[in-house]
Design a protein around this nucleic acid. Structure first.
Lengths: 197, 197, 197, 197
DNA sequence: TATGAATGAGAGTTCATTCAT
DNA sequence: AATGAATGAACTCTCATTCAT
């Protein structure tokens, strides 16, 4: 029913990111988003099925595009460890680029509303697949240990990056996420233990 | 104003865990929690300031107790790597023990409501400190690398465990979290890379 | 869930009759009814499931009581033709007594809303049964013709009375319905044709 | 403003009967009617002033035509009692012919909206006049009793037929209305009482 | 004539919280 | 301490109507 294209559609998405980042999902009334997008309240419903659909669509548009870009760039590299570095970099870089989007992504999409969660997860699983592929490749290339459990590795990679970004978003100080890439990569690859001589 | 002790206080906490796990925070009306706890709606407000305070108090009671136990057990071990294993074990074991609590912890406390987040964080930071201490000790003992950034390490440890538990809670299949302890520990200590001969 | 007793329940019913008669069902906002009944909007929902339920309950209370009274009085008479006269009288008298109720009954309950119609019909069928019983008795007593189809007779009796009252309600002039009892009764009993000498 | 002629006008009327019969007046959105009529939403407003006007116009077109036909056929008969039979027949036959129209007529036009009711009544009164004329003629011809009150008689005739058709429309079973003509006619003429020997 | 995207007013209902008993 | 009836603010979504093209 809802027509998910056009300039107004994009405007509403942008307005939603802004308003939700500022007020939180629950305090981001549809009328507030409409005003920010300079359209009438009813117009929102020409492009979105309901309020939840705004958040889901927003996530789909933004994260979907990110995943595509990330995949393209990652696949230009040969070695799995380089791919992992690129993935870390892309994740942090993307979130650095748009703090409002990061807020929405890290905080507001973590609603317990089942419909919302399901919609979000539909997008997220493509990202988790991308991580899996890097891990599989690493094992195949003999760079990552054969005993590495890819499900655990995936959760470590995603869980760590997610926590790093959440922490950054919640923090007053606006430090540079990109500076963390090497540290994180090193931790993933070599672990905590002291390097052998 | 609210008296945070007594049998009824505990009953309400237990009722809240049950009801919130089942219906989600937004669908866990105060009257539903009151009925489950066999008290009147108004009685809730003799023990809690407001609905948010129920969730925060619940988190404080449950996770606070967990942190104390975890700290006690961890401090009985000497080596940081053993402590880390114990921390992983305690985290997963605790969540395994009470699935309802795990649901509330992993899903329902992730509300974007600022008051709620602040209350939750107040408790959580004690846990994050505990993690920090293990990392510091590891570096001091020369078990963990001197270049390990404790903030990154802490986010890796917490982020990974959090993601592992969330994933377990969201999953239909009820696999045994405890079985993952060694894999996770190994990944944290040695990283992804293939072991040197 | 809704508690359909108590003083407030009755107050709301009375307020609803008044407000709906004056503004029509669609323009009788719940808040208007609440104000008229001197209760808060939310209080309405302690006594009624929803707005439709107000109209249905109102009809049930008022018409249900009327049917009981009518039945009691009718059954004190022996002859079916006397019972028919009493039924006509009771119908018109009842409506004369409370013009607001008549307006609601004749106009506002004729909504095409299926839920509403079903609720209304549940009450109405008891009245139609009462009419049927009078017709059956008349045939049994040999007062009404053996060939009279009770279904048609019932529709004639109800349809006529309904149209008479609707017409009265719609009319500006407030003539006395009771004066029509004999004419209607005569028409039902003897029909249109000129009396035999 | 609205041009009430042309092929599209008729198409919209037909579409409206269909859609309103199926979904009810309130669920028969203008856009639904437009789609059924294969025109744009805005086009509706070139032919009708507003949504109410569609229902009123529909009633006018359909019932107006019916009244004309009924009058023509009735006036070909001499005796008032034959005319009454023809009127009953025409009423039931017409409704039998187009169940959708019957649904709209019996259920959906009974809206409490004053504007709508006024528009409907404007058409209906021509029908009531036709009934009156039959009654007057019967009295003049000495076929109907001189004491018959024509207003009561009219209400009996219309009220009964209306109730018969409403009952038929609401009923699941699709029995033949035409079969009822003689019974109804007999009841109108001779009343309920047992025939004199 | 015809289109259909855009408008924006309007209302039922929920539920955390209070307070008289 | 405990009760639970009463409160009333708050918000999503629908849909008849318009008007630039």
């Amino acid at each position: 029913m809802a027509k998910k294209t056009g300039e107004k559609y994009q405007n509403i998405i942008e307005a939603a990111v802004k308003v939700i980042a500022r007020y939180g999902y629950h305090q981001a009334q549809v009328s507030k988003i409409a005003r920010e997008a300079s359209v009438a309240d009813g117009t929102i419903y020409l492009y979105f099925d309901n309020k939840d659909d705004i958040l889901i669509s927003l996530f789909k548009e933004k994260i979907g595009a990110f995943i595509d870009t990330a995949r393209t760039r990652i696949e230009q590299l040969d070695r799995a460890d380089d791919r992992l570095r690129e993935l870390i970099y892309m994740h942090l870089w993307q979130m650095s680029q748009d703090r409002n989007l990061a807020i929405v992504t890290q905080i507001e999409t973590r609603q317990s509303n089942p419909v919302l969660r399901a919609g979000i997860y539909d997008v997220l699983k493509h990202y988790l697949n991308l991580i899996d592929e890097v891990v599989f490749l690493g094992k195949k290339q003999g760079i990552f240990g054969p005993d590495v459990d890819h499900r655990i590795a995936r959760k470590m990679i995603f869980g760590t990056l997610d926590e790093v970004v959440t922490s950054w978003v919640m923090n007053e100080r606006d430090y540079n996420l990109i500076n963390l890439v090497e540290s994180i990569h090193n931790l993933f690859i070599n672990g905590l233990k002291v390097a052998k001589q």
